[in-house]
Amino acid sequence: MAALQGAQDGGTFFPPQATEAAAEHDSVFFLIFWISAFFFALINVAAVYFAIRYRRRAKGEPVEKSPSHNTKIELVWTIIPTLIVCYLFWIGMTGYVDRRTAPAGAYTVYVTGQKWSWSFAYPEGFVSNELHAPVGRAVKLVIGSTDVLHSVYIPAFRVKMDAVPGRYTEAWFESNRPGTYNLFCAEYCGQQHSMMGASVVIHADRAGFDEWVKEQTDLGDLTPVELGALLYTRKGCNTCHTLDGARLVGPSFKDLYGSPREFEGGGTAIADEAYLREAIMEPTARVTKDYSPTMPDFKNGPIKIEASELVGFIEFIKSLSADGAAEQAQAPGEAPEQEQE
């Protein structure tokens, strides 16, 4: 699970501060904390002190008359908190506007949430399931969703913004601390909500980042099986389908090819290439027995799969079963390496 990675060496209250905004956020937090602690101590110490000092010593004891009203004191404890919250509003507002407004010329990454994975589209023209950026570069996230609400949340950056289907939202960050951080989905989105994480990798320098970009864009020599293996994580298939036979949301890819399938509502089929094509492009057309129709539709849905990618997927799935691997081994000109996780 991608969300289980990450450097976690922050303090008692917060994860590490990986942006300047995080440091600013924390200082505002502690300002409010100490103001709150003061008032909290004041009222509780007073209440406990009064409860002891003026405890009833005998039932029916006479009570000394004391005033039940004092306009001056009421005004004092109305006006002082009012001034304090006005100040808090002001610093909160300025910090918020700064953190919602990306600087001009920021590196723009399109983030798409779908049940239950994240994909990041980079200006260099590739898509990854990880968010990468170099230190010291402002990154603007343009966030969308293909199905329900999600929320991009990177605790180390103190950044959060909902992914709303039907519109784009924006967030930005500029990290000053290389490392790998967690990205969580913070808006409840159904079954795998807590599994919907991604890694955020901040490269120590521009060269490291550029090298990663080069790896991602250089797909020219990949065989269909290698392409499928790459897309398996990039498109987030790994959230729901394992390679080792374990069951998650959807069936495992292991030994899927060539196996007999039973469907919800009756009907059977052998998982050949034609079946796999249908299961990928129109997953709800026939749903495997005991599974629910939750997979995104790549034929009519917002995310499309290209023809070459489809071949990659099918060949990758074939490579994971004994029958399919044997077929591929016979095919002229194709000697795939078995991709393992």
């Binding site: 409010i32 808090l88 913070a186």
Partner: peptide, 12 residues
């Protein structure tokens, strides 16, 4: 209620 701190704390 403070906008800048709510960004981090919201939905946690």
């Amino acid at each position: 209620a403070t906008l800048s701190t709510d960004i981090h704390l919201h939905d946690t």
